[in-house]
Nucleic acid binder design. Structure first.
Lengths: 173, 173
DNA sequence: GTTTGATAGTTACATTCCCAACCGTTACAA
DNA sequence: TTGTAACGGTTGGGAATGTAACTATCAAAC
């Protein structure tokens, strides 16, 4: 019998959405209350904090945000003085985005809160469930990276190691 | 060394959100192109299709939607003639929502598409990864159902079996 | 050179969303 | 009874979002 009823509790898009919504909404309090950031702004900050310097397109590809969201987030963060935009000398369409000192210090203040949140979340699961979740998600990420409009940009990934050197970490001194 | 950098690829809220966003956006084409439904409307339809009769509050609790979203989705679906609203005789604040014949036939048309989508998604994973993902998500759902404003409403769950009898399935005849 | 097409990023507009205030109803207690 | 607090559901205003168009630039072909 091809079921005529869709069991939402077993339906992957539904389950992922419910979880992501609930967690994201809960977690957003941290950066919203603290700094008045919205989600695209936080994501942009977090991406630049991790990778150092990126273009808007790379940020969008990496975090699966639409370019208009990134664009507005960049404007907002620049207005705060948290990131600086530098023109690419060889391609004037491109802007290289980097966190300023203020941006980095905000990032550094948020990282432990975010880490703690993530760990608290995982700590509520049995160790074997943590592993299952992580590996299951990784498999799904991998499956989607091929099919859909690939979720992880190649270029962003390539610059990761270099960025880690130039990014927030380096300025920790 | 307490890391000063947050590795987004390992950060649960980030991973869940990226996946959920991408999948949800992709899947939404199915009910959007076909019927011009938006996400709250589809969710309401799917919830009523599965459970038969519910109140707006129950739908919201079950699918983690804000009550204003549910309210507007109900108005929209009622306007299409896809659901009927019946006053509760003993409590005039409450409305019992049920899909009409048209609503059920739309639901029945969408269920196989949704099921196929979910299965296609899972089919891209190795069987053991499917199991890990499902169990990992279940563990997370369970963990959150206790802490947060529990994601699954008790009352909705209790009526599940009864609803399956009265709901879309029964009218399949 | 200039045309064509792709790309980086911004802007405009219409829709959707969240939050808070609100209405009507119910429960319950003084 | 009369407050008063809680609840189901709706509405309104401001913010966020997505789509599509747009500007500016680049690259490649002719």
């Amino acid at each position: 019998m091809a079921s005529e009823i869709l069991v939402l509790e077993d339906f992957l898009p539904y389950r992922l959405n419910r979880l992501a919504d609930a967690i994201s909404r809960d977690f957003s309090k941290i950066y919203r209350d603290r700094y008045g950031l919205n989600r695209p702004e936080w994501r942009t900050l977090a991406t630049l904090g991790q990778y150092g310097t990126m273009t808007a397109t790379e940020i969008g590809a990496h975090s699966a945000m639409h370019k208009t969201k990134v664009s507005r987030a960049v404007v907002a963060l620049a207005k705060r003085g948290w990131l600086k935009r530098e023109a690419d000398p060889s391609d004037r369409r491109v802007e290289h985005l980097t966190l300023t000192r203020n941006g980095i210090s905000a990032y550094r203040a948020l990282v432990p809160l975010a880490s703690a949140y993530g760990e608290k979340l995982l700590a509520a699961l049995a160790p074997e469930d943590q592993a299952k979740l992580s590996e299951g998600l990784r498999a799904l990420e991998q499956a989607l990276s091929g099919k859909c409009n690939r979720l992880v940009s190649r270029s962003a990934r390539d610059t990761a190691s270099a960025a880690a050197t130039n990014g927030a970490k380096a300025q920790a001194k």
